[in-house]
């Protein structure tokens, strides 16, 4: 599908013939059918009064909702930062020649990836029941777990530590994608392990690490909605606060959903450009943008398109 974007330099037939593109009637049939279905769905959504669009509009920029977005974004950024930092450490431990270090990291990943993040959140929230006093084993240190573990810290711990398990797998795959010859060349130049990792291996691993990390970021944005069970006033919980008072459940869920879509869309666009940037020089042609693909579809699949000789717009 990419080849349509880069036209051949010499036209088919040497420019002497009119080139008629292949027609794809079934693509048009499927396109029309899907458009019809989409239209019906939109029509029903707009005409069904129970969606309460007027209330959606009223609460869309409600101060509680906007504060909720701020909390959601804050949580996403902090938890991803915790996840990435700890994930790198865990990945390096997993690849370490020390069997205890790699077993520890493996065990961490097993536990934190093997249990639902909701369960982990509840565990952190109820930490005081498990350890009423936190001493870290140091005499003289005694912290009240009930004061230390606020809903917010429980949320950051739960989401961040869980994310670290996933990030460590992503970073490990990235590190392993770098050619062994690079480590050898660095070693032959006398570069110790940590220097080799930071100067040679990780910069090259970034190309593999960045795209899935973008996915994790967008995933995290939505996973933060789980903290509503801890009464952290994120976007979803803010909507819940409002509808528990005015009982407009559906309109407020719609408000929250629209905001989630808006924020994820902004991040997705950003992620697309980030990926194109990091794939530059390594693949022959960067993946096309959505807009470019749509244009290509209409250019190729138009039943009226006959291209004489040279390709049209270039």
């Amino acid at each position: 599908m990419i080849e349509t974007i880069t036209p051949p330099s010499t036209p088919v037939g040497g420019g002497a013939f009119t080139v008629v593109s292949a027609r794809h009637p079934w693509r048009w049939a499927a396109g029309i059918m899907l458009t019809a279905i989409m239209g019906l769905l939109v029509f029903s959504a707009v005409t069904n009064p129970r969606f309460g669009w007027d209330k959606v509009a009223r609460y869309f920029r409600d101060v509680t909702v906007v504060n909720g977005i701020e909390v959601t974004l804050f949580l996403t950024v902090i938890c991803m930062a915790v996840g990435v930092a700890l994930g790198v450490v865990l990945a390096v431990m997993q690849l370490s020649p020390n069997p205890v270090a790699s077993a520890f990291a493996g065990g961490y990943v097993t536990i934190f990836r093997g249990t639902p993040v909701l369960v982990q959140l509840l565990f952190w929230f109820n930490l005081a029941a498990l350890y009423p006093e936190i001493t870290f084993g140091i005499p003289g240190v005694s912290l009240d777990a009930n004061q230390l573990i606020t809903p917010m810290t429980a949320a950051i711990l739960g989401l961040g530590l869980n994310e670290a398990a996933y990030m460590s797998e992503i970073v490990r795959a990235g590190i392993q994608s770098v050619d062994q010859g690079q480590t050898e060349a660095a070693g032959a130049l006398g570069m110790p392990r940590l220097l080799t990792l930071s100067r040679v291996v990780l910069p090259q691993a970034m190309r593999v690490i960045i795209p899935p990390t973008g996915n994790e970021f967008i995933g995290m944005l939505k996973t933060t909605s789980l903290v509503s069970v801890l009464a952290v006033p994120d976007l979803l919980y803010s909507a819940q606060i409002i509808y528990s008072k005015n009982l407009q459940v559906i309109p407020l869920l719609v408000v929250a959903s629209i905001w989630y879509i808006v924020v994820t869309t902004v991040f997705t666009v950003g992620q697309g450009y980030l990926e194109r940037r990091f794939s530059r020089g390594t693949t022959r042609s960067a993946p096309p943008t959505a807009w470019g693909r749509l244009r290509a579809f209409f250019r190729v699949h138009s039943p009226l398109a006959t291209r004489k000789g040279t390709n049209d717009e270039r």
Binding site: Q182, E184, A185, A188, Q204
Partner: peptide, 12 residues
């Protein structure tokens, strides 16, 4: 000093 068959220059 060592020189490898596949050069192993740092591409970045």
């Amino acid at each position: 000093g060592m020189v490898f068959q596949h050069f192993n220059l740092f591409p970045h």
